[in-house]
Amino acid sequence: MDVLGLLIPVSLFLGLVGLAAFFWMLKRGQFEDPEGDAHRILRDDYDDAPKG
């Protein structure tokens, strides 16, 4: 049972990391254009060098 003392904080921490990541994505507007992003990955404009 002692392991619970470790596992519960660990699972909570991982969950919080996920939540924080979601907030960050939301703030950065990464859900503004889901359809466009799905298509953007297919084009080869910036395959050789990233956009400046």
Partner: peptide, 10 residues
């Protein structure tokens, strides 16, 4: 034009 970005969803 300095920047242009297309939003396909909208």
């Amino acid at each position: 034009v300095r920047d242009a970005r297309v939003n396909l969803t909208m």
